[in-house]
Design a protein around this nucleic acid. Structure first.
Lengths: 254, 254
DNA sequence: AAGTGGTCTAGACCACGTT
DNA sequence: ACGTGGTCTAGACCACTTT
């Protein structure tokens, strides 16, 4: 593309007072839309950089920069010699990205899930607000225990938008093995890509104490999470009560 | 630089069985060494991309990629039209990078520090191990309260290598205003660039309860931090006891 | 006007994986 | 041998800041 053409494009890209976005950001946005709309599904190979460059009428380097950022955000995964793939919660590398509770010593080992409840209900005001729903809208409520080495360590209460998770039942959960986000991705086409968490220390109430085999009043780490899919759309609220004797929540500040 | 020369370099870069590193990674390493050795100090302007390219005998694009990564890691800060600067804990943008305790509602506001203790002591075994010291080596111990809006919210116990923080006294702390890491950077030439944290819920003991105006046994969020400077060298151990009523620890999973 | 980082392009070659 | 991503270069122009 000639330089004069480039300049014209750069100008054309801005509307009257509209926000300016570099070409590679626009390409990035187009790729996210493709992912969001399911053009390429988790685990699949996306077109090569040159193919995408031809499709979008830009140079390969511009596509590369867009993909670079998407790979940094874990939406895509590059594999040298093979191509670029849509990230999935099923691959081992992504397995522990959202699991921050680990044993003080020893290996990070997959946890076992025990589902206690799974039913449809109407969203309370706070849950509805977090999920961008209206109070009283249908939600799926899940309660489960995470066991490490046979010991219950985390009690999770989870709320999901009912419209998005039709057909999610206790049986479906019980027969599934692997990370919950893998199930959501494969069975319901909803991929979690980001989450905000708020952590607190609280005293265990009677229910939590019984399920986690503690005395009421024992300190628990409460992790309140809101997870987002493509386009910053909230799709999960989770409250995890964690036993932190022998286990901790790990974090790296960068 | 001619392509044949390039190839020769690429081969020359590998020793016998030595690890391969792309040129830009090597440039990045050289820049980190310059930062570590104080060639450019926090807040200062580093040479332009073209100057660095000339110095290291590579193209500007290669220097750019090295700087890109260092900027992503918050070691450098780019400012369009002005140049690239060494990151500092004094600038507002970096102010809250290591402060994760925030009020549930309202603005993130700077906390007030009240120093309770500052003395030299011999390192206990666990502290020594975390700081890469020997048990019994000199360390500086600091105890302080962080107050938000006049209320004590965090009790921090901090250990620093004695050799690195000669001359750090209670008076020095008391007369200083601003983030602790700013003081460390300016007065002791030690810049914190990364930290690992382990979070737990614990019950307040008598001392913690008194200082934080709680009842003994009240749940507290315990944040154990090890901070690192250039080259992954640990330089601080911190144990923060946090009141999480009205405040929480915020985190984003990406 | 001059200097800096920011974007975009085009083309070369290297490293890796598959055919 | 071929196709993919990964690195490196060179040069153009844009956007921002200071002189």
């Amino acid at each position: 593309m000639a330089e004069a053409q480039r300049s014209a494009d750069a100008v054309a890209r801005r509307g009257k007072g509209a926000v300016f976005a570099p070409l590679y950001k626009q390409i990035k946005q187009l790729l996210v839309e493709g992912l969001d709309q399911g053009e390429w599904k988790p685990g699949e190979l996306i077109p090569s950089e040159f193919e995408l460059a031809a499709r979008f009428q830009v140079s390969q380097g511009t596509v590369r920069k867009a993909i670079d950022e998407l790979a940094a955000e874990h939406l895509l995964v590059r594999r040298q010699g093979k191509g670029t793939f849509v990230a999935t919660h099923h691959e081992p590398r992504a397995q522990f990205r959202f699991l921050r509770i680990v044993p003080d010593e020893g290996e990070v080992v997959p946890a076992q899930s025990r589902f206690l409840e799974c039913r449809r209900q109407r969203a309370a005001a706070d849950i509805a607000r977090s999920l961008d729903l209206k109070t009283g809208d249908a939600v799926v409520f899940i309660r489960r225990l995470l066991l490490f080495d046979g010991t219950p360590i985390v009690l999770d209460d989870i709320w999901l938008p009912g419209a998005m998770f039709k057909g999610l039942t206790a049986d479906r959960l019980a027969e599934y093995h692997g990370p919950l986000y893998g199930l959501f991705e494969t069975e319901f086409g909803t991929r979690m890509i980001r989450a905000d968490e708020r952590l607190r220390a609280v005293a265990a109430d009677a229910t939590e104490a019984e399920l986690l085999r503690l005395k009421p009043g024992a300190p628990l780490l409460l992790v309140e999470r809101v997870s987002y899919t493509y386009g910053e759309r909230p799709v999960e609220v989770r409250r995890g009560f964690c036993v932190t004797t022998g286990y901790h929540y790990r974090n790296t500040l960068t």
